[in-house]
Design a protein around this nucleic acid. Structure first.
Length: 162
DNA sequence: GCCAACGTTGGC
DNA sequence: GCCAACGTTGGC
């Protein structure tokens, strides 16, 4: 199966690309996802080697800031069984875990962020899940053309400041 | 801080 | 199974 691509959303207040950069081996467990559809992607579809667009939500401006690679495919999210964790789920049965996580490793930090506004203005990205009205999913599939387009934007020099 | 868009919960 | 109420996400 060819390599696939995903967009992972994170509020940088919670976990930023910078945090990933300073994680051991620049690798982190992508845990805490508590949406069934996003869980399905994590559990069933995301494979080792897949590409990840790292996106900062709730930031000013919201933007894709770099890429990562999946280094471990779906496994039960340990946080769901951790009473001390904010992501603890008392209703999840260890025999049939409700939530899943993957591990990702930093691959490339963009020399400049690709902002949401810029993506909206890019015709080739018009079909992106991220740009859909009301799109809230924190794990989203990204088409290979979209991946290539975002990377191209990232390596383009920023337009001169006004 | 506001609000639209969803998802979840729970009464019936 | 419906749906109102409520909670959360996330752009602006």
């Amino acid at each position: 199966m060819p390599r696939r691509y995903w967009l992972l959303k994170s509020d940088p207040e919670t976990f930023s690309f910078e945090d990933l950069k300073f994680s051991p081996r620049r690798t982190t467990c992508w845990d805490g996802v508590r949406n069934p559809q996003a869980r399905n992607y994590l559990r069933d579809e995301i494979r080792v080697g897949d590409g990840v667009l790292f996106y900062h939500s709730q930031s000013d401006p919201p933007a894709a800031v770099g890429t990562a690679r999946v280094v471990r495919s779906g496994y039960p999210d340990p946080a769901q069984f951790d009473r001390g964790s904010g992501s603890h789920d008392p209703d999840s049965d260890p025999a049939e875990p409700r939530w899943y996580a993957v591990d990702i490793r930093l691959e490339r930090e963009f020399t400049r962020p690709v902002t949401l506004g810029e993506m909206r203005c890019t015709p080739r990205l018009a079909g992106m899940e991220l740009l859909r009205r009301g799109s809230r999913l924190s794990v989203q599939p990204v088409r290979s053309e979209e991946w290539a387009t975002v990377l191209k934007l990232a390596s383009r020099r920023a337009s001169p400041a006004r």
